[in-house]
Amino acid sequence: MSTPPTPPPGAAPSLASQREIDREIAALRQSYVDLRAGGAPERLHPDRDYLPYRSSALRHPKQPLVAIEDPEVMELTGPVFGVTDVTALDNDLTRQHAGEPLGERLTVTGRVLDRDGRPVRGQLVEIWQANAAGRYAHQRDDHPAPLDPNFTGVGRCLTDDEGRYQFTTIKPGPYPWRNHRNAWRPAHIHFSLFGTAFTQRLVTQMYFPGDPLFPYDPILQSVTDDAARQRLVATYDHDLSVPEWSLGYRWDIVLDGPAATWMEEGRL
């Protein structure tokens, strides 16, 4: 398709402009800065109630979460995965079809750690992403960018004894969405991670350094703490780049939530 799609009549006017979204993002950032100056704790995760991300409006609880402090709850254990659950090719997203996908070939690697810095060993890491043109292999993605018959965009692996994961893939493209008018997501790879405890479960997104779309994106900006937001951005690592083959990005992941040391000692 060589021309931009025509919006359906009446659809566009109900959407906020980027400028309105920018103002909301700035106001929420400022209120967090003010709270911090008043001694409020760091906010290490996004607020579930984040107006600039419009879909969050009806999908966040209004009641406070109920704190469970019992050190023997079953959530301090978690599901187990093994070599039966992944195949050897699953961590190479460029070899799932007859031909090579289009795009910039990448090596993405890092370590999965708990908050004490201990490696999370033998646990499942799952990723999914758009293709180089910014299109997901999903029927509901109607972005008029080409599908790539040689790229699905799904990968899995188990972490090794040092908590390391590694994927070969291509760089995903940025893509438009309908949160507001002219909304574009910065390029990202979705990550899903398990720890030894179900409480450590994490689904998140990895971004690429220097993306000009960062300030405009309400999903990334939902992490209002500057240092916390920076933790979602991978580092380009020239030593990881493979000559004549791929560019290297490093992204370490720290899982939040308590882990059952009493169980782990039994397992080790």
Binding site: D114, H190, L202, A228
Partner: peptide, 12 residues
């Protein structure tokens, strides 16, 4: 160590 922040699972 500070934790890696969560992000939405998204639609896809």
């Amino acid at each position: 160590l500070p934790p890696t922040p969560s992000q939405t699972v998204g639609p896809f």
